[in-house]
Each structure stands twice: as C-alpha cells, then as structure tokens.
C-alpha cells in the first residue's frame, strides 16, 4: 500500500469526524475559489452600464460611480442641489421613502441620465 493510501486508511478509521470536517472545508474551498475567479474575471471586464443600484448607496456615491455630475444626480433624486451634505436624504432607501419611488424607477432615471451624458460626450 502507498504511503498516501495508508494515511487515508488510518485517517478514515481513527478520525472519521476530522475527515468529514476536512471534506466540508475542501468543498467550501473549491466553491469559494470558483466564486473568486469568477468575480476577478468580471472585474477585468469593462464597467457594466446597467449595474444595479443598492438601497444602502448614497446619492453622492451613485453620482461618483455612474459618472454623473453632483447637481444632475441630486436633481434625479428630487434633492435640491444647494442642500448641505448632511441635511438631505443620505441613502437611496431614504430617497425612495421620501419621493415615493421604487429602486427600479431610480435605476431607470440614473441609467437614462448616464446614457444621455455618454451620448453628448465629445
């Protein structure tokens, strides 16, 4: 019997619980590695124009990430551009509650404004 075979037989006989835990850890490792590679490949690609908004994002972060000037993004969200940073709604969740909008509606507005900006860019 090879050394690896002898080791496996010993481990299965004497420490089946440790082997079961090791198998679970190996499966988790494989899945996480696949996820990591997939995420990394996605990162190497171009930035998707239709990437989703999240309720935790701030209006300023949306403006920064989607390349929209601050007055434009604030207007899209029904916020007066002269509002001081900590006076208006701080997250998209607050914007949705205040304006009675859904996330899909906000997403549509942002995507349309970003597309318009791209078209008009020289």
């Amino acid at each position: 019997m090879t050394r690896a075979g002898a080791f496996l037989r010993y481990a299965l006989r004497r420490h089946p619980v440790v082997i079961a835990l090791l198998a679970v850890a190996l499966v988790a490792l494989g899945m996480l590695l696949a996820g990591l590679i997939s995420d990394a490949l996605q990162m190497l690609g171009p930035v998707a124009h239709d990437r989703p908004l999240e309720p935790w994002m701030s209006p300023r972060l949306v403006g920064h990430a989607w390349g929209l000037p601050k007055p434009v993004v604030l207007e899209l969200m029904g916020i007066d551009p002269d509002t001081p940073p900590h006076a208006g709604p701080r997250t998209l969740a607050e914007v949705m509650a205040r304006e009675g909008l859904t996330l899909a509606e906000l997403q549509y507005r942002v995507a349309a404004a970003a597309a318009l900006l791209r078209e008009n860019r020289p």
């Binding site: 995420d39 996605q42 990162m43 930035v47 990437r51 989607w66």
Partner: peptide, 16 residues
C-alpha cells in the same frame, strides 16, 4: 465605481 463587485470579491477572498 465598482464597489459592489469589490465587496463580492472581498467576501469570497475572506471565506477562502
């Protein structure tokens, strides 16, 4: 500008 993608990447890397 890629914050949600980075968050997913970090989650997987830490688990790994």
């Amino acid at each position: 500008h890629r914050i949600t993608e980075i968050a997913a990447l970090i989650g997987n890397a830490l688990g790994l």
